[in-house]
Design a protein around this nucleic acid. Structure first.
Lengths: 304, 304
DNA sequence: CCAGCACATGAGTGAATATCATGGTGAATC
DNA sequence: GATTCACCATGATATTCACTCATGTGCTGG
């Protein structure tokens, strides 16, 4: 008999494109999903998707179930929200810290959207903290930390949000503009513009320049992405940012982007949360909203 | 985590009005449902319904889930139909026999509705059969038999459809018209109108007259319910029919109805099917359609 | 006050669902 | 081609959890 579990799996599979990642999203092993889907397919008498392609390609039957899932799951989520409200479980606290400055780009729309659905959850992003966010999370001073390097801390769970690529933004007429990728060497006589945070928290240094033991000629800081873009566009420096932070400017052809190194600098962004808060209905909702919003930003879709 | 199973249970519970009967409908024990709902309620942090009332009364949370179920389950069923179609499993045969003549009242609309959804299923109600329908079912000459007395036959499964009451229809000005109930004695100087079938297949005889060793003064037969009603209304006799067959005429105040005996004559109507056909998607659909249609007829709602 | 009914509950079981370990397959790289 | 890598399938095994059975409790009506 068909169950919601199957529909959730299919949605995860579509979003992920592969069984392994889909398994992660629904908190199961790859094997579990393989079995689950096999059973389902046997009962239906039809395969649901072709496995040999990346991303997986759904059959007609698979697509039919996907549209069902898209109809049904939002309705179920709405009902669950209503039920949480009825049960008085809607109260909670969501104090956040971000280790990656440009995350505001997708975090703000996420928070806005979330606030509408969970008015009783107290949201805050305390600025100017001088403590280390992850221990503060364990100490219950914070409830969620956006971070790119998870460290094992007892009671802390890391929920993967999405993968992103660090790109070097350069002026349109810059000598690196057409290149397939930039080397650390390319930066030694450039002015690098960064957020005003310690270098250990910037991928360009930790994953690109430091391993090659290179330094840029000069380092300038800017508070906001748009200020960086102005400096870059006017040829007064280059800057390294995640792909999603740049899409907007790339689309308008305001600057050009070049991957960092032959294989690029990739990272996964995690939401660090305490184990106890993991099952709270509003927490699940926040994480899903975050994924959807960041996806929308990355695709260049303007979020509502 | 909420699953479709829970929604199906709630719907069954609403239709049944009690846990025991709901359990029957979803093919589980009463205990299973009790556990299932308890778990659900604990996770939601809210009771779903009050048990001490008949029928059970749903709380706000329960009602919210019910509306979700009503939204979602039809969508799921439509998808399942589409999938069966895609898999080529939509073909089947549905040859039926009815032991209870007045069942045509709800069977015809059911069949009409069903034919639209499953055009590939071959439907037939072979008339004028002279064989015993239940053995014919086991022999695969038939696929479904509507009967009120299930007999244990290997490989045959009985699906309860609904309970009904046998009523005595009398003319408006008949001496029995106002009575709380009729006794077997009351019929000895009446003309009883029946369908032209053997007496062993008529509840009035088997459950009412025969046990009291009474016979009506005269017995006339009529083929159709409407003909019976005309005879009854004009005072040329009385007739015993299931409640659903009479609702239409009672509403129009064409005849009056009196229960048979102090406690009434009650029966449960079953659909007898072969075990193998029990899980076929179209069979499940047919049974559900039958229940819904008969319910609609009984409530006086004109089916589409 | 007892019978009868409906639901709850605890213990126990088995099937459903998960994981682990392993092996096969296709695509990219040398 | 061989090698590596990422992905998926599969069988054996473990665990969970959903159900049944047996029994208990509380309500209702004669």
């Amino acid at each position: 008999m068909l169950e919601l579990r199957h529909l959730r799996t299919l949605i995860a599979l579509r979003d992920a494109g592969s069984l392994v990642e889909a398994a992660e999203r629904v908190h199961l092993t790859q094997s579990a999903l393989s079995h689950q889907i096999k059973d389902l397919e046997e009962r239906l008498g039809n395969p649901l998707f072709l496995r040999k392609t990346r991303p997986v390609e759904f059959t007609r039957a698979g697509l039919r179930l996907l549209t069902l899932a898209e109809q049904v799951l939002p309705q179920v989520r709405m009902a669950e929200r209503d039920l949480a409200r009825l049960a008085g479980n809607e109260q909670g606290r969501l104090h956040m810290a971000i280790e990656c400055h440009s995350c505001f780009q997708w975090l703000m729309p996420t928070v806005d959207h979330f606030r509408d659905h969970w008015p009783e959850v107290e949201i805050d992003i305390p600025g100017g903290h001088h403590f280390d966010p992850l221990p503060a999370l364990a100490r219950e001073q914070l409830d969620l930390v956006i971070t790119a390097d998870p460290q094992r801390i007892h009671g802390v769970h890391y929920e993967p949000l999405f993968r992103y690529q660090g790109l070097l933004a350069v002026a349109r007429q810059h000598r690196l503009a057409g290149r397939p990728f930039a080397t650390p060497e390319d930066l030694v006589d450039e002015t690098l513009i960064t957020y005003p945070v310690e270098h250990g928290r910037l991928d360009v240094f930790t994953q690109f320049l430091d391993p090659a033991e290179r330094r840029p000629r000069e380092i300038r800081t800017a508070e906001l992405t748009i200020m960086m873009m102005q400096l870059v566009a006017s040829g007064r420096g280059v800057c390294a940012l995640p792909n999603w932070a740049l899409t907007e400017y790339l689309e308008r052809d305001y600057v050009k982007a070049v991957p960092l190194g032959e294989h690029g600098v990739w990272s996964t962004l995690f939401a660090a949360i305490r184990e106890e808060t993991r099952d709270a209905p509003w927490m699940e909702d926040f994480l899903r909203t975050a994924r959807e919003t960041s996806f929308a930003v990355l695709e260049g879709v303007r979020p509502a």
